[in-house]
């Protein structure tokens, strides 16, 4: 059997914080009919540098072309393309469940323990449970809580860092600083 060329890819985009950037980024995916599974925007460790984390399912040749096009956006500093082996990643989910039903079942504590979840808030009406982990773990807890009538559910996009010992963005920014020095001479 040959492996399906389709895989989940994580794209990390380091950029300036500019208006309309997300629009430009998502355009590049939509032009190729790629569905963005999730997006997370945040600061990065480099001063003033923003970080977009996007996951999408595709094949490597297509994704390499997408990366090339992303890097052409003027405000984009650097783009990395990863599969799950290259990164440490997590997602976070919140579940809002009626308190009464949970308590009646006497299983609350077992569920929380066995899924490594925690209770954020408990009122007579509802309980908010938080779970951090991989997608399948979040889904497993969802399945388990289903019978207590989940009132609200939300899952974040993926947050991740690479497992490489080298910080490519720092090296790149250092190179750019050299280039700036040269351009000023």
């Amino acid at each position: 059997m040959t492996e399906s060329p389709y895989k989940l890819f994580t794209v990390i985009i380091y950029s300036e914080n500019s208006v309309g950037l997300l629009n430009q980024v998502s355009n590049i995916f939509t032009r190729r009919c790629l569905n963005i599974e999730d997006v997370t925007a945040s600061l990065s460790s480099a001063p003033g540098v923003h970080k977009l984390t996007i996951t999408t399912e595709s094949d490597r040749p297509t994704m390499e072309k997408v990366v090339g096009q992303l890097e052409k956006i003027v405000e984009v500093i650097k783009v990395g393309l990863y599969t799950d082996d290259d990164i440490i990643y997590q997602e976070i989910a919140l579940y809002k469940v009626p308190t009464m039903e949970l308590l009646q079942s006497h299983e609350l504590e077992t569920i929380i323990r066995s899924h490594g979840a925690r209770i954020l808030e408990m009122t007579p009406e509802y309980t908010i449970i938080e779970k951090t982990g991989h997608r399948w773990e979040i889904e497993a807890l969802f399945d388990c809580l289903k019978r207590y009538d989940i009132r609200q559910f939300v899952r974040s996009g993926r947050v991740c860092v690479t497992n490489s010992p080298v910080e490519h963005i720092d090296l790149f920014l250092e190179k750019q600083r050299q280039r700036q020095k040269q351009s000023e001479q």
């Binding site: 950029s15 300036e16 003027v74 405000e75 984009v76 500093i77 920014l173 750019q176 280039r179 700036q180 351009s183 000023e184």
Partner: peptide, 8 residues
Amino acid sequence: VNFIRSYN
């Protein structure tokens, strides 16, 4: 301008 950090 002859330098933009994000553009080489």
